[in-house]
Structures are given as structure tokens and as C-alpha cells.
Design a protein around this nucleic acid. Structure first.
Lengths: 217, 217
DNA sequence: CATGTTATTCTTGTATACAAGAATATTGAC
DNA sequence: GTCAATATTCTTGTATACAAGAATAACATG
């Protein structure tokens, strides 16, 4: 055993939650999971503890841990918080971004454009993710960068879907261009506002999707 | 046993770290801690896991967990992130704050003033904390509120000390008044900027304190 | 005496055992 | 047949046992 199996299990469980194999409200049966991963309950429990502190599951004493997918309200709140976080990163980046980082941002954007031209939302998301990580990093604040990445990861499944909406990729691309332009100018407030709107729109689009989905059923 | 002892131990350990009884870099000896709290290693380990995910300790495989107090750089980054978070809360609060909440903010501020008049930094800090929590709540975003509180807790020991600097309490009080004034006006940007500066100053003051402390030794 | 090597001890990480509360099944009364 | 009370089973939470790597001590060698 070269690595803590508890850590491996943490990631496996996260994956199960993200892919939806462990659905909302489902109980995490320690024994079943232990058998599934071929370990004892101990590392499974440690993994569950970690998920609990990062908010993916809730623990009820003597009853176990349950998957806790955010509801519509919490999701909106998380998107709003993400918008604010990214705005903060962008504002700081406007003052601190290096020429090298700007070049990287441009190339990331070009790749987004390529994905858009190919009409490939998954590829677009991937390149788009890279673009945003670059902005977090350009904030020059490692702590903020980590926090932004954490929330980004948590929202990842929801940010993805809205890209499949008609015209959304193209619109997103325009917003990216404006963000970079404002960064080049060094206009902190404009970067912040553009980024904030960029994320807020994602939240709204996602909201629309959800509403339509419910209507459909 | 009415409550999970692991949860109790988590809080006890947090306390030990905050009070400094467990100093920076110190190893958390599972056996010693287990004896100290009168339990087995299992709940102690679970508690340590939690501290690790919240960032208070780092774990090295097969070597144990070590207290990880943030260094000067990380501390500055955390203060900056806190400033941004509070600014975000304030901006949202400017649009959403209720009249009731404004009254609460005013009374909280009056209590700060009273503490200032008594020249009691500890009391001031307490009332000041309440003031800030009210602003987090007034953001109308529960998720953001939680995140802000989390970081606030983490910075608590450092926010405290700078209040003992000559004239800092009075200055802080002025800033509070301006924040409320901007909230009443509903001027989001002004609230955000004032709050951001309010926290940023705390970071700077703390920095000065640290610098002087080092010079002294 | 310094240093490199081996042996021992210690600590973590995992598995298993046990205690106690929660959920479920069984039984009895109406 | 339905509902309440009790008995049983199941699951979590904690303690202990064991395995393996890390730190340390003992020792040999130059």
C-alpha cells in the first residue's frame, strides 16, 4: 500500500456523487461501500467525514451520512457566490496580471473559439475551465485561487449543462473577449463587473434549464 | 453517550490550536490526545481528518498530522480574501437589506460605540463581530454568509490583536458608520469599497504589529 | 570519534470486535 | 384486518488488535 486508501476512497466517493450514481438523499452504507472498495469500514468512514466537512454529504447521528445535492435555492446562492468570487479574482488580476499570463489567457480564449467553431460544448467547457483557472491564478492570491477552484469544482456539473443551450457558447465567448480586453486595460471594476455577469448568466441559464425540465415531466 | 465524541474532540482540538497550546508545526500525537480526552484513537483520528480538510492541520502519510498556522504571506492573502468576501456581502446587502436588519445594524454599532467609550477592545471585538455577522446575513445569500463566517472564524485571533493599536478602535468605528450610511443609501459599490478597505486596513495593521514584534525580538 | 548499517521501538493506517441506538419484523389485542 | 407493543436485526460509533513504514537507538567499522 503506497498511498492512504482513505484518500483514494474519498475521491472515489466524490466521483460517485458527481456522476449521480449516489443520488440525492441516498444513504452511504458503510458496509456496502467497504465491500465495494475492498477495504474495511475504517477508511470508508474517514472518507465520509471528509465529504461531510466539504459539504457533499450531511451526517445525522446514529443514522448515517446522506448525499446532499444542493436544492434550487442553494444552487442559485452558490452561483451568486461564484460570481462574486470570480469578480474578486478579476479585479485583483486587473492590477497584477503579467504579460505572460495575458498571453496564456489569449491562447486559452483562442482554444475556446476553436471549440466553438467545432460546435463541441464539452471541449468548450474544458478550455473554458482552463481560462477561468488562469484568472483565479492571475489574482495573485493563492488562497483566493484555491477557494475559487473549490467552488468551481462543486459547480462543475451545473456549469456544464447550460453550455448546450442554443447560442450560449457564442455568447460566453463574447464575454470572454470583453474580460480579456478589460484586463489588458487594467480596469479592475470593468473586469469584475463583466466576470460577475458572465457567471450570473450561467446561473440564470441553468435556472431556465431546470424550470423547463420540470415543466417537461 | 448523547453526542458523537468525535465532534466534541474536533472542537476541543480547534480550541487547542486557536489558543496556541498546540503551536505551529507541532505534531498531533493520536495516542496522547486520546488519553487526554479519555477516548480511543478512533474519534481522535476522525477529528484530525476534519481539521485537515478545513486546513488547520496538514497530514503527511505515515508521519502524522501537524498544526499549520498560516505564514505572513498566506495570512495577507486570507485578509485580502476576507476583504473581498465582505465587500461582496456588503454589495448584495445594499440591494437587499431590510429595514429591520438596518435597525439591528444600528444597535450593533451603538454597542460598538459603547465599548469604544469604555476603551474595552475585547468587548469592542465582540460587538464588532456581531456587526459583521449581520452584514453577512444581510447579503441574503446563505451560502456566502456561511463562507464569510468560516473565514472570519479562521482569522479571528488575528483580527483581534490589531484592535489594541492606538486609535484603531475609533477609526474602525468611523468606518462602521460609513458602511451603514452607504447601506441606507443603497449604494452597492460604496458599501463594497468601504467594507473592503475596512478589512484591508485590519490586514495592514496586523502586518505592522507583526513587523514590530519581529523587530523587538 | 565520526559515520554508515542494522535492530528496535514507535506511530500511523487498517481491520476487526463490541456496545448502543435506530429501523424493522413479529406478535398480540381489539 | 389494523394498530400497538415488544423482540429482533441492522447500522453506527467506539475500542482494540494487528500490519507496516518511520524514527530512533545500538552497534560495527573506518
Amino acid at each position: 500500500m503506497t498511498i492512504r486508501s482513505a484518500d483514494r476512497i474519498t475521491k472515489e466517493l466524490e466521483h460517485l456523487v458527481f456522476t449521480g450514481e449516489l443520488g440525492d438523499g441516498e444513504r452511504l452504507d458503510e458496509i456496502k461501500l467497504a465491500k465495494r472498495f475492498g477495504v474495511s469500514r475504517t477508511p470508508v468512514r474517514e472518507a465520509i467525514q471528509k465529504l461531510a466537512t466539504s459539504g457533499l454529504v450531511t451526517q445525522e447521528p446514529r443514522r448515517g451520512a446522506f448525499v446532499r445535492q444542493p436544492g434550487p435555492v442553494e444552487l442559485m446562492e452558490m452561483f451568486e457566490a461564484m460570481a462574486e468570487l470570480e469578480a474578486s479574482c478579476g479585479r485583483l488580476a486587473a492590477f497584477r496580471v503579467s504579460d505572460d499570463a495575458l498571453v496564456l489567457l489569449q491562447t486559452a480564449n483562442d482554444k475556446c473559439q476553436a471549440a466553438l467553431d467545432q460546435g463541441d460544448p464539452d471541449l468548450y467547457y474544458q478550455e473554458n475551465e482552463h481560462f477561468h483557472h488562469l484568472i483565479y491564478k492571475a489574482s495573485g492570491n493563492g488562497f483566493l485561487e484555491q477557494e475559487a477552484q473549490k467552488l468551481h469544482r462543486r459547480l462543475k456539473p451545473f456549469r456544464r449543462v447550460q453550455l448546450h443551450l442554443r447560442g450560449r457558447m457564442k455568447q460566453s465567448m463574447c464575454e470572454h473577449r470583453e474580460i480579456v480586453a478589460a484586463l489588458v486595460e487594467g480596469d479592475g471594476d470593468r473586469v469584475a463587473n463583466t466576470l460577475r455577469d458572465h457567471i450570473a448568466i450561467q446561473g440564470e441559464k441553468f435556472h431556465h434549464l431546470m424550470a423547463n425540465l420540470k415543466k417537461g415531466t
